[in-house]
Write a protein that binds this DNA or RNA. Structure first.
Length: 157
DNA sequence: GCCAACGTTGGC
DNA sequence: GCCAACGTTGGC
């Protein structure tokens, strides 16, 4: 089992949306590195930290799991879609997506500044200037963040 | 809304 | 293959 962090802007799709929907396809990935991770490394059942980006504050808000193997992202062929890719070939689609299933909403948000405050997380891809919207996390990082979420928020300062 | 960091494109 | 220009991400 591997562990991931996936970003979503809550204005576009939030953890509450996923809780309501149960399972949703994760479309719109248009980055080769993220695509390759989904295509080559994601396995059904892998756990995902659901991260709210462009939020106030940004941070990890929930857990999801990978619900199926990757398949073509239909939005790449939709001229009206935000992530339309006119250069993608119908017979050899460039972009894929996976289905993601809601697991839980964390007892509290673990914010980006809080994540940065933990030396244990210093190597997280998220904290090292990566803009990858799908990124691997280690089992230790995953568990550490869940453990923090089950404790009271640390004192500020 | 600004803009730094990063990724992609395309001319050469 | 280099790299400048451009586009996007995402924190602030």
């Amino acid at each position: 089992m591997q562990y991931w962090l996936m970003k979503s802007e809550p204005g576009d799709y939030s953890i509450d949306d996923l809780e309501r929907d149960g399972t949703e396809h994760w479309d719109g990935i248009r980055n080769y590195q993220a695509r390759n991770l989904m295509r080559d490394q994601m396995k059904v059942g892998d756990r995902v930290l659901f991260y709210h980006s462009n939020a106030k504050p940004p941070g990890v808000v929930g857990v999801a799991e990978i619900a199926g193997r990757p398949y073509p992202d239909h939005t790449q062929f939709d001229p009206d879609a935000k992530y339309y890719d006119p250069t993608s070939d119908q017979d050899n689609p460039r972009w894929i997506m996976v289905d993601v299933r809601f697991v839980e909403k964390l007892p509290r948000l673990v914010s980006l500044p809080e994540l940065r405050s933990y030396g244990e997380l210093a190597d997280m891809v998220l904290l090292n200037r990566s803009r990858l919207s799908v990124q691997p996390v280690t089992k230790e990082q995953y568990q550490f963040i869940l453990d923090r979420a089950r404790e009271p928020a640390p004192e500020k300062g």
